[in-house]
Simulated assay, not measured.
Amino acid sequence: MILSPAELQWVTERMKIYDIKYQESYFEILDHVLTAIETKRDKGDARDISVVFQDVVDTDFGGYSGIEALAVKQENIFNKYVGGAFKTIFRGYLNWGVLAFTIVASGLAYTLPNNKVIHSVFFIAIFLLAFSPLMYAFVLISRKVTSVKGKKSLLKGRLISQTYLPGMLLNGIIYLPVLFQGGDDTNGFKMMQHWPLPALMVILIFFAVLNLSSITLCNQVLKKRG
C-alpha cells in the first residue's frame, strides 16, 4: 500500500533524527523503512504513521542504535567495495606487457640527455599523472552527484580519498628521503633532480598505471551507481 504524501513527508522528516552522516546511507535506509511500513499497511495495519514507523524501527531495525549501526555497516561495505575494486583494476593493469614495456622504456631512458630539462619534464609528467585523477574525480562527481543539505556524500568522499592516493604516494617519494637525511622540504625536489633517468621512467610508468586505475575506478563506480 502506497503511503500518502503527508505520511511520506512525516517519515522523511522523522528519519532526520538519526545520526546518518551520508546521504546515500540515509536514502537507502529510508527506502527500507518505507518498504517495511508499506508491507504492514498491506497486511491491514491502519495505525497512525507515527505508531507504525516506531514499530518498524524497533522490530525490524533494532531501534535507534540499530538504525545508526546499519548506516555504519553500509558505509563500511561501500568503502570495502571501492577499495577492492581499485585493487582489482590496478592488478589488471600490472601485466607482463606493462612489465616488458617498463624494461624497454627504462633502457631507452639511458639514451636521453641527463640534464635539468629532461628531469623537469619527467617530474612535471609524474606530477600531472599523480594529481589529475583527483581533479578528474572532483569534476565528474560535481557533475553527476547532487548534494543534500545537511548530509555528506559517501560516494564523493570515498572517491576523492581514493583518487588522492597517487598524490600521497608522490609526496612520500619526494619527502621520505628528506626525513632520513635531514634538511628542509625543498631538499626533496633537489634530490629528485639527481635521480637516474631509468628510475624516473619506472616511477613515471607506475604513476601512469595508478592514473588509469583511478580514472577507471571513478567511471566504474559512477556507472554502477547509475
Rank of each mutant, 00 (worst) to 15 (best):
Y64F: 14
N79Y: 09
G84F: 09
Y64D: 06
Y81R: 08
G63C: 13
K80Y: 05
F86M: 11
R91C: 03
L70H: 05
G62V: 04
Q74Y: 10
I77E: 14
I77K: 13
K80V: 00
N76G: 10
A69P: 03
E75N: 12
G84L: 07
F90N: 12
A69N: 13
I89R: 15
Y64L: 09
K80M: 00
R91W: 12
F86K: 12
K87W: 08
F86G: 00
F61V: 03
A85D: 00
A71T: 01
I77S: 14
E68I: 05
L70V: 01
V72Y: 05
G92A: 10
F90K: 06
G92K: 12
I89W: 14
F61I: 08
F90V: 10
V82M: 03
F78N: 05
G66I: 02
I89E: 02
A85Q: 08
N79K: 11
Q74T: 01
K73R: 15
G63L: 11
S65C: 11
E68D: 03
Y64P: 00
G66M: 07
K80N: 06
G83F: 08
G62E: 13
F61A: 12
T88C: 06
F86Y: 09
G83Q: 09
L70W: 02
F78E: 02
N76T: 01
I89V: 12
A69K: 13
K73V: 02
K87F: 10
G62R: 06
E68G: 03
V82N: 06
G66F: 08
K73N: 09
F86N: 04
G92M: 13
A69E: 13
F90H: 14
R91S: 07
E68H: 08
G63R: 15
I67N: 02
E75Q: 07
G84M: 06
I89Q: 11
S65Q: 14
A71E: 02
A71R: 14
A85M: 11
Y81C: 01
A85C: 07
N76M: 04
F78I: 07
E75F: 08
G83S: 06
G66T: 05
F90A: 07
Y93T: 07
Y81P: 01
I89M: 09
V82E: 03
I77W: 01
G66D: 10
A71L: 01
G62H: 10
